[in-house]
Simulated scan of single mutants.
Amino acid sequence: MFTSAQLPNSTLLMIVGSDQPDQVRRVGTRIRLGGSTDLNKLLPPDVHPHRLHVTPQSLRQARRPELDGYDFLLNMVTEPEGNDRVLDNMRKLLRGIRGKVINRPDAVARSTRDRVARLLAGIDGLLVPKAIRLNGAKPDVAVRAIGNAGLSLPIILRRTGTHGGEILGCLDSLDAIRDALTAGDHIATEFCDFQSADGLYRKYRIFFIGDQLVFRHLLISDGWNIHAKDRRRFMLPRPDLLAEEEAMFSRADGAFPDPVHRVLDAVRERMPLDYFGMDFGIDPAGRLVLFEANATMNFFPFLPDPEFAYVRRCLEPAQQAFRALVGMETGR
């Protein structure tokens, strides 16, 4: 770990780390962390914040880092799954610190898929699929837990800590779920259909950065498990779909109807994080369907294809919001 005394003066400290050694890599003088946000790329290129690397063994060191000199302490450990020790060590290191801690470690720890589902349930206009945690080592107990929790089939089954559409399947029987379970923890989530009237599926992504909302993109596909690859595969040959997404950028927070913005405002009120992203669909009844909301969600990269140049309109408002969040002059 570095202490503030070992580095030049700075008002911003970025805190990185992971319980898993294979998630942390040194590239030259920089630390690359898997399972973390990439919003730090919104900082000006000439700004190089101090970095503190927290490990599961950090508190065993005789000398603690000197953190009181920082005005803003930016937690970049955004994946709650598998980072219990690092987040707990960070919480202890930050106890009593005078500076503003952005995305406090205890708030990140409460942002697992199952806990967020419980947190956001009941918001008017938001359909939150039930989600529970399962122990794959006990498949019979896991299957009973699904029934006891009242989850409806089909069920999306995934390992904890996975993103980017990495699932074990969308399964329509308890026997199939039992067979798909592997060692370790899993998340079982109800599948809620969000197919549009034209037969396509739409996934919206928005970022909450401080008190600002920034629309990131709309992905449209012919299948429900929508990902970035569908932008070129499915959207690129369809000028009408490109025009539909481009129209969403007429407002920095997305050209949604007012009821959608009211739902997003309610999500902002309930979530304990200072910055996070949210993926969602909109069902034929006009309800938002929550896919996930967490701070690990990626903002970058942007595709170089000129047909998608309009997506970069989200960059400036995101830069302004993030720089304001960490106490920088937004004009930089």
Rank of each mutant, 00 (worst) to 15 (best):
S4D: 12
P8T: 03
T11C: 01
L12R: 14
P21Q: 00
Q23Y: 04
G28S: 01
G28N: 09
N40R: 10
V47M: 15
V47R: 14
H48F: 07
P49M: 00
H53A: 04
H53R: 03
P56G: 10
Q57V: 02
S58F: 09
R60M: 15
P65F: 09
L67G: 12
L73M: 00
N75H: 11
T78W: 13
E81M: 12
N83F: 15
K92S: 08
I97P: 08
K100Y: 07
N103V: 09
N103Q: 13
V108Y: 01
R110Q: 15
T112F: 00
D114A: 12
R118C: 02
L126N: 06
I132E: 01
K138Q: 15
V141G: 04
A142I: 01
R144D: 14
G150E: 07
I155K: 14
I156Q: 08
L157H: 05
L157Q: 02
R158H: 05
G161K: 13
T162D: 05
T162A: 06
G164W: 10
I167P: 09
G169S: 00
C170R: 15
L171M: 09
A176L: 00
A180M: 07
T182L: 12
A183R: 11
G184H: 04
E190Q: 15
S196I: 01
A197W: 04
A197K: 05
D198S: 10
R202T: 03
R202A: 07
K203N: 11
K203G: 02
Y204E: 03
R205N: 06
F207N: 10
F208D: 10
F208Q: 08
G210I: 00
Q212I: 00
I220K: 07
G223S: 03
W224T: 05
W224L: 05
L236Y: 12
L241Y: 14
L242M: 14
E245S: 13
M248N: 02
F249A: 01
S250E: 14
S250H: 12
D253F: 03
G254L: 01
A255E: 15
V260A: 06
R262A: 01
R262F: 00
L264N: 12
V267N: 05
E269W: 13
P272A: 13
L273R: 06
L273T: 05
D274Y: 09
M278I: 07
F280I: 10
G281K: 04
R287P: 00
R287Q: 01
R287C: 04
R287N: 07
V289Q: 08
V289F: 13
F291P: 08
N294V: 05
F299S: 09
F300M: 10
L303F: 11
D305Y: 09
D305N: 12
P306L: 11
F308Y: 12
A309I: 13
C314Q: 04
E316G: 03
R323P: 08
L325R: 13
M328P: 12
T330W: 02
T330Y: 02
